[in-house]
Design a protein around this nucleic acid. Structure first.
Length: 544
RNA sequence: GCCCUCGUAGCUCAGUCGGAUAGAGCGACCGCCUCCUAAGCGGUAGGCCACAGGUUCGAUUCCUGUCGAGGGCGCCA
C-alpha cells in the first residue's frame, strides 16, 4: 500500500473521531513545492472547516494532535501551518520502500496501471489524404497519437491504432489528374497539386497504369515507410471506399433518420445538428444525390463504435470545425459525449535556415516528414514533437533540433540512460555487483541527491495516470527530463564505484541506478524514443 | 461577425480537482574534469503569470469582458 493511502486513511479516521460528518469525499494529499512544508500536505482542515463548524487552524490543530498520538507508518512529524494546512514529514524509509517497489516491478510493471480494465479504445490519427507525402505538420499528430495509444496500453486499455484513408473523394481525382498531366509532359491543372513530389512521382509512374490507383499506392507506401521509420505502426488502415461498397452509409443514414435527426430541404438531406450545439444544420447528402464529406465520416465513426467502447480522434487545427458536428452525430446515434474524445493539435511552424516554411500541399512548398526524420533523427523528432502540450502552436526549428545538441533535451535524457549502462559495466568490470535486493541495505541512501532521485521515481505512476487521463504525453516528457536531471545530479555528487566507496554503499547505489534505468526506460518507451546504452559525442575530429 | 487554441523570465515552454515564497531548458555572467562519459554539475542575474472585473478562506489556475497572436467557419475534403 502506498504511503499516501495510509496517510489518507489515517486522516479520515481522525476526522471521524473528531465528529466531522459527513466526511469529505476526497482527502487531497499533495506534495508541497516548499520542502519546509514537509513531504506531504493536506488542505482537508480548510476544506472541512464549514462542515465541522470550527475554524481551519483549530481543526488542523486537532488533527495534528490525533495524528501525532498514532502516527501512520513512516510519518515522523505532523504540523499545522499557514491558513490550516496539515503537513507530514516522513522518514526516508518510505522512499527506500518505494525504490524496492520500483526495482521489483521492473520496466514491465512500474507505472503500469489497470484503470482501463480492458476497455476497448480506437485511437485514430494522421489520416492524411493519400494524395502526397506526409509533411512535417503530420509528424506532430503522428507522434502524439502513437504516444497516447502507448499510454492507454500502459493503463490497461485494449488499444487499436487506426489510419482512416480518405480514398474516394474529389481530392483523389485532382491528385490523379495532376499526376497524369505531369506524366504526359503537360502542366498541372490550376486546382491540382503543385508540389515537387508530383513531378518526381509522375516520372516514376509506369506507362499505362491508372494514375489514381498507382498514385494511391504510391502515397500509402510513403506514409507507411516514414511512419515505420518513427516506430509508428498502425493496426488498421480503414478505407473510405470499403464503406461505400458495404452499404454502411445507407445504414447510418437510416439510423439517423430513425432517431428523427434528419430532414430534407432543397433536395438535400440535412442533419439537425443544431439540436446538439451546432450553429447550423449540416448537409449529409447533396441535392445532386452525392454524399458530403460528413456523411462517410459519420458512418466511419458509427463503424468504430461497433468495434470499441471509446474513440479518440486526433486532428489538426484546421479541422476543429468538425468537432461539434461529429459530437452531434454521435449523440444522435446514442453515444455519450465522453466516449468520443476529439483532440485538436495546434499547428506546427517549421523553421529552416532561420526562416519559416509554410506547410501546404496545394501551394507546393512543403517539408516532407521523411526529410525531417533524415535530418534530425527519429528520436530527436519524436521527443521534440512531444515536448509541448498539443494545445500550443509549435515552432519546430530544424537547425536547432539537428545541430545544437546542448539545447536538445532528448540527448540529455538519453545520455542519462547511457551513463547508467556505463556505470553498471564499470562496476561489473571491477567485480561489484548489486547482489540480491533482500541483502542490500537501501537505508544507506540518504544523500539529498539520492532522496531526490527516489522522490522522482515515486511520481511515475501518478504521471502516467494523469497523462493518460488528460491524453497529454508531454507530461511524460516533462517528468523524464526531471528524472534525468535528478540522476545527473546524483551522478555528480555520489560516486557509485571506486576504491573510496564502501561496498555496501556501492550495492545500494547500484540498485538506485537500476531504479533510474527502469524509470527512464518506461518513460522513453511511452514516448517511442529509444534508450541507448552508450552515446559518444562526435567532435568532428575523428576521435571518439 | 461566429467558433477553437494560446498569451507565464530576453527566447522556447512546464505549472497536478483552485493552495503556502510561480519553475525548467536555452541565452547572459561566474565557477567545477589526475576522478564511474563535461551531451554533465553548481552559482548569479532575470516575473504586474496580457489587462479589467467576478466567484472564495485563498485565483497563474474557474467565470465574464477587453486587447493581442494563430487557426477555422461551403450542398469543398
Amino acid at each position: 500500500m502506498d504511503v499516501r493511502d495510509t496517510i489518507i486513511d489515517a486522516v479520515r479516521s481522525a476526522l471521524a473521531d473528531l465528529g466531522v460528518d459527513p466526511l469529505p469525499d476526497v482527502v487531497q494529499l499533495e506534495r508541497p513545492a516548499n520542502p519546509e512544508h514537509g513531504d506531504w500536505s493536506t488542505n482537508v482542515a480548510m476544506a472541512s472547516a464549514k462542515v465541522a463548524g470550527r475554524n481551519p487552524r483549530e481543526l488542523g490543530t486537532a488533527l495534528v494532535e490525533r495524528l501525532t498520538a498514532v502516527p501512520p507508518p513512516h510519518v515522523v512529524g505532523v504540523e499545522v501551518a499557514g491558513p490550516g494546512f496539515v503537513n507530514f514529514r516522513l522518514a526516508e524509509t518510505w522512499l527506500h520502500e518505494v525504490l524496492a517497489d520500483v526495482v521489483a516491478a521492473g520496466t514491465d510493471g512500474w507505472g503500469r496501471l489497470d484503470s482501463g480494465a480492458g476497455t476497448r479504445v480506437i485511437v485514430e490519427f494522421v489520416s492524411a489524404n493519400p494524395t502526397g507525402p506526409l509533411h512535417a505538420g503530420h509528424g506532430r499528430g503522428a507522434c502524439y497519437g502513437d504516444s497516447v495509444a502507448r499510454l492507454y496500453e500502459r493503463c490497461g486499455y485494449e488499444v487499436e491504432r487506426e489510419f482512416y484513408v480518405n480514398d474516394s473523394g474529389v481530392q483523389m481525382q485532382k491528385f490523379a489528374a495532376s499526376l497524369a498531366a505531369r506524366a504526359a509532359g503537360g502542366e498541372v491543372p490550376e486546382d491540382g497539386y503543385h508540389g515537387q513530389y508530383i513531378v518526381d512521382w509522375a516520372a516514376e509512374m509506369p506507362a499505362g497504369v491508372d494514375p489514381l490507383e498507382w498514385g494511391y499506392e504510391r502515397a500509402l507506401a510513403d506514409h507507411r515507410s516514414v511512419l515505420e521509420s518513427m516506430s509508428i505502426h498502425f493496426d488498421s488502415w480503414f478505407s473510405e471506399r470499403s464503406m461505400i461498397s458495404s452499404g454502411a452509409m445507407d445504414a447510418t443514414l437510416a439510423d439517423l433518420r430513425a432517431a428523427g435527426a434528419v430532414y430534407e430541404e432543397g433536395g438535400a438531406v440535412w442533419l439537425r445538428s443544431t439540436d446538439h450545439g451546432d450553429d447550423k444544420d449540416r448537409v449529409l447528402v447533396k441535392s445532386d444525390g452525392q454524399p458530403t464529406y460528413l456523411m462517410p465520416d459519420v458512418a466511419y465513426h458509427r463503424d468504430k463504435f461497433a468495434r470499441a467502447d471509446r474513440l479518440v480522434d486526433v486532428f489538426g487545427a484546421d479541422h476543429h470545425g468538425y468537432v461539434v458536428r461529429m459530437h452531434a452525430a454521435m449523440s444522435v446515434l446514442g453515444h455519450d459525449r465522453e466516449d468520443l474524445q476529439i483532440v485538436i493539435t495546434q499547428l506546427v511552424n517549421l523553421q529552416r535556415d532561420g526562416r519559416e516554411v509554410r506547410l501546404s500541399k496545394r501551394t507546393g512548398e512543403m517539408v516532407e516528414l521523411a526529410y525531417v526524420v533524415d535530418e534530425v533523427g527519429a528520436d530527436a523528432a519524436r521527443f521534440t514533437y512531444l515536448l509541448l502540450s498539443v494545445d500550443s502552436a509549435q515552432t519546430f526549428d530544424m537547425d536547432l533540433v539537428a545541430s545544437q545538441v546542448n539545447e536538445n533535451p532528448v540527448f540529455y535524457v538519453q545520455y542519462a540512460h547511457a551513463r547508467i549502462h556505463s556505470v553498471v559495466d564499470r562496476a561489473a568490470a571491477g567485480g561489484s555487483v548489486r547482489g540480491s535486493l533482500a541483502e542490500v541495505d537501501l537505508s544507506l541512501l540518504t544523500h539529498p541527491r539520492e532522496v531526490q532521485v527516489m522522490r522522482s521515481l515515486h511520481e511515475l505512476p501518478d504521471v502516467v495516470a494523469r497523462a493518460c487521463r488528460e491524453r497529454a504525453p508531454h507530461q511524460v516528457t516533462t517528468w523524464v527530463r526531471e528524472l534525468a536531471s535528478a540522476f545527473h545530479g546524483f551522478y555528480q555528487d555520489c560516486r557509485v564505484v571506486g576504491p573510496e566507496v564502501d561496498p555496501a554503499t556501492t550495492r545500494a547505489r547500484l540498485w538506485l541506478v537500476e531504479g533510474v534505468r527502469i524509470g527512464l526506460a518506461v518513460a522513453l518507451d511511452l514516448l517511442g524514443v529509444s534508450a541507448p546504452t552508450e552515446m559518444w559525442r562526435d567532435d568532428g575530429d575523428g576521435e571518439a
